[in-house]
């Protein structure tokens, strides 16, 4: 069981999950692949912000309530500086507005802690 958990952590939650999808491994290193992977990452970032952060702060899972709160308390500064900078870097237009809005919501939720 531990092995399953660790493999999920290291292989599925990886920097470029796009290339985990079946059939896309051969695109690694090509400009087309890079482009596709960035788009894929963008959607993951949106969903991570919305569901794995904001939603978990608003309605935490009852079993993990304390763990989630402690985690976000400790990671607050990292999220609002390093991560925000990295994730909003390449964004333009509509997407930039969306990510900024999500980060604004996240900030208010984090300040409530």
């Amino acid at each position: 069981m531990l092995q399953v958990i660790v493999s999920v952590q290291s292989l599925i939650l990886c920097p470029q999950p796009y290339f985990n999808e079946p059939g896309y491994e051969r695109l690694i290193g090509t400009p087309n692949g890079k482009n596709q992977s960035d788009q894929y990452d963008a959607s993951i970032i949106d969903n991570t912000l919305r569901w794995a952060m904001i939603e978990q702060l608003r309605k935490p899972h009852p079993a993990f309530k304390d763990a989630i709160k402690a985690h976000f308390k400790l990671r607050k500064s990292h999220l609002l500086t390093v991560v925000k900078k990295r994730w909003t870097e390449g964004a333009t237009g509509e997407r930039k507005a969306r990510v900024d809005g999500l980060f604004k919501e996240l900030t208010t939720e984090l300040n409530k802690l």
């Binding site: 939650l13 990886c14 920097p15 999950p17 990452d41 963008a42 993951i44 970032i45 991570t48 912000l49 569901w51 794995a52 952060m53 978990q56 993990f64 989630i68 985690h71 976000f72 990671r75 990292h78 999220l79 991560v83 990295r86 994730w87």
Partner: peptide
């Protein structure tokens, strides 16, 4: 990763 800091 694009999952940075999220609670999954």
């Amino acid at each position: 990763t694009p999952y940075d800091g999220g609670c999954f």
